[in-house]
Write a protein that binds this DNA or RNA. Structure first.
Lengths: 218, 218
DNA sequence: ATTCAACGTACTGTATACGAAATTCAGAAT
DNA sequence: ATTCTGAATTTCGTATACAGTACGTTGAAT
């Protein structure tokens, strides 16, 4: 039984990918007909994907005015960051005791992350997978889904930051701190360290965002 | 300048309303063409609304098989309940110190709630407004939006419970406990009481859900 | 030169049309 | 009676068509 996938899901991923790659910078306008012809599908699935992205906060949409990539806004990052900190910490506390192989896999991902230089998208993909792996012991599927959806937001900021600053790698220090806390102190301890590290990274990214030049109109 | 509202938003509210009223019980199938003709619009905005509801977890949708109202499932309630507990508590802690008139408005809502007998929908509307009022001091708009969206889920369970049990009113005891904690001990104290009361109510509702008969197919 | 208005273009939001997959119901075989 | 099969029908997912609105552009008036 092959799982057929709706076109809207594929379009969703394609558009998100373009945003992550920076092909669609903040403020860029998205014309559904144009995207449709580029992707070789009709406007219908494109609009469904864009509506979803708008509801997830990646795009702005005002009636009759179509869609555009939401501009980078320090307060948005702060708001979503606060939510994510609480939710990921919660997921960690709800998790089952992690089997040793998961710690190994986390370490392996960090090794890959350190070796990756020059491709921000790959870095961020690994970073995402690290988080997924960290939380995969959480039985609350709904929570994990919500976290994955919300993580799109800081990811976009981080991608822009890396492009702008020319920093093409990602520090693994917070990861190792969290992993050590998880190994030594258990999940609650790891959750506390997570929140602390998360807040620190968020503040750094927020400071950069606040000092950014406003969007190009395009 | 009147704000024109997309049809999909109106359809969204209509469908949600029918679900809340019990016109569309758990497991009921939603045929987009049928809804479209009933509401006097085309299938397009109807499908946009249904896709949104599916993403929010109110509906199930599998490829080629359309939409149906998600069945009541104790584990879903538990999962969303855990998320909501954390988020509402967070919103409370992030809130500004509440002005005295807000406490008055909360008390007034409770008075209305106690006087309302016989209409579950009205009860739940007041309950929703009570929560909105409690958290309206929270500056994190994004958080409030997320909470409002997630609250659809327990609301549906509560509506089904009230219909089933013939309980046509809602206890205001948890509200007063939280309000008192807020007045006496501040937001952090209120957040703690909130989590405790929330967990209690959730367990009660979950117990009822677990003992429910499975859905009618319809 | 600048500003305002009227027009034209283009894009959005909504409606309708079409092809394919899935459910249903009839009828035959066990 | 029950189960399997297969055609008919429904309904979904996608494509296309249409109408109304926002925006740009041009031209005229100050």
């Amino acid at each position: 039984m092959i799982a057929r996938v709706p076109l809207r899901d594929e379009v969703y991923r394609q558009v998100l990918d373009r945003i992550h790659r920076g092909d669609l910078p903040a403020g860029a306008r998205l014309r559904d007909a144009e995207l449709a012809s580029q992707l070789g599908v009709s406007r219908t699935p494109v609009r469904e994907a864009l509506l979803r992205l708008a509801r997830e906060g990646v795009l702005d949409s005002s009636m009759g005015r179509g869609f555009r990539v939401r501009s980078l806004d320090a307060s948005e990052l702060e708001e979503v960051g606060a939510i994510l900190g609480a939710l990921e910490s919660l997921a960690l506390r709800l998790s089952a005791e992690p089997p040793p192989d998961r710690l190994d896999r986390l370490a392996e991902l960090d090794r890959r992350l350190e070796q990756t230089r020059g491709d921000a998208v790959v870095c961020l993909d690994i970073e995402d997978e690290w988080h997924r792996t960290l939380l995969e012991g959480c039985p609350n599927r709904r929570l994990l889904e919500l976290i994955a959806s919300l993580r799109q937001v800081p990811r976009r900021y981080l991608a822009a930051f890396m492009r702008d600053a020319g920093r093409l790698s990602l520090s693994t220090l917070p990861h190792t701190k969290i992993a050590h806390a998880l190994r030594d102190g258990g999940r609650d301890s790891a959750a506390a360290v997570f929140e602390q590290q998360w807040r620190r990274g968020l503040a750094e990214l927020g400071a950069w965002t606040a000092g950014r030049t406003p969007d190009p109109k395009s």
